[in-house]
Design a protein around this nucleic acid. Structure first.
Lengths: 208, 208
DNA sequence: ATTATAAACGACATTAATGTCATTTTACAA
DNA sequence: TTGTAAAATGACATTAATGTCGTTTATAAT
């Protein structure tokens, strides 16, 4: 084919990324080869390589786009909540809903990529930035309540944030382990979110 | 070489497993090839294949041995504690110590294997057994206190167990993420263990 | 229509890992 | 000391993935 518009190329990129995303979820990141993606897109080897030259590149594009959406979601969450606790509550509910839902999402793929990146300097620094970014947005949520006097934290705010992230991530993993063999009840998704809620109420000394 | 004693073979097996363990920790499980291990042992290809025919097989041997040790540790923990809370407290302290220590241990390798196993039926069922085994031992710890009336749990015991495992595992991951770039302070290891302690005291209604 | 452009193609050389097996070596028993 | 079972060797065939590049083909501009 020939010289085409920017939109055309953009569309093709999206097509490839969407296919890649599905395969990453189905097979895992490390087990996915360029050949797999080439075959799934129905394009030729050279055709795909014109846009992306590695699965790593694809992964980052997908992740970066996801993160943009998370960012928006966080901001709207804060904006649409009348109290800081309400925002936290909504976050907990969202987490619960997500973990109760079936199927494996892109989150596991990110986890996998993360684990396999610990020894690869270049990848690790990419993830570090991403981690700090997410941390920052969680932070806003709590900081908000502290400033209005709604929260009186007994632990450093950063420690509280990390604990929230820790539990949320762990829940994702446990939910996945149980995928196809145990249901969400066996992993006690709701109870674990409740456990996090108990802790947060206590540590933030939320006014009743 | 020639027909040799059982001990000789056992010793050789141990040698190979020890080398494999080191390489797994250094490079990660999925990135380690049989060739890597062959080279590191100094044996020949066929020599190693005589004992193990895949990295998967090696991984399971190492893991099973670790689990035997964990089992012993758990039992001695219960035996050497005068109250159930004391045992829980010791477990928390042990977790904190471990997470504060430097270096990457075999735990990450197990995590990595776990993630990569989600889509492989045979691997997943192996891990499921292992998970139930660990869960059972954690369970004894709490069950003990319930029977003596020391604990009056507000949530299902299994949910509490899972939360403990969840946080411990998450802490391992976060500690690893920070390896070589952030220290344990930045991951708030101690504070997160303290958060878990706060939750446990509350949910178990520990008598003072 | 015609032409220039570059998107898409697909064959190919290269690299790396796997599992096997005929051969060599050596510990142990007789 | 010698015979032998089997441990250990290392070369090799096989398989699978990667990145490249000369060729083909479709589009948009003229």
């Amino acid at each position: 084919m020939p010289k085409v518009s920017e939109e055309y190329k953009e569309k093709r990129k999206e097509e490839i990324l969407e296919t890649a995303r599905e395969i990453f979820i189905k097979q895992g990141f490390e087990k996915t080869t360029m050949t797999d993606i080439v075959e799934a897109t129905g394009l030729s080897r050279g055709g795909v390589y014109q846009y992306f030259s590695s699965t790593d590149e694809m992964f980052r594009h997908i992740t970066d786009r996801n993160d943009q959406e998370s960012k928006k979601w966080f901001l709207s969450l804060i904006e649409n909540s009348s109290t800081a606790w309400e925002a936290v509550e909504k976050l907990l509910q969202e987490t619960e809903q997500d973990r109760l839902s079936d199927g494996i999402g892109f989150g596991v793929v990110q986890f996998e990529y993360f684990l396999n990146s610990l020894r690869v300097e270049e990848r690790a620094s990419y993830l570090m930035k991403r981690f700090q970014f997410l941390r920052e947005y969680f932070s806003k949520l709590i900081q908000n309540g502290v400033e209005t006097g709604e929260f009186k934290p007994l632990q450093p705010i950063d420690a509280i944030i990390l604990f929230i992230m820790n539990v949320s991530d762990g829940l994702l993993l446990y939910r996945l382990m149980s995928f196809n063999r145990l249901g969400p009840k066996e992993v006690y998704v709701s109870e674990q979110v409740e456990a996090l809620r108990m802790y947060l109420k206590a540590v933030l000394q939320v006014e009743q």
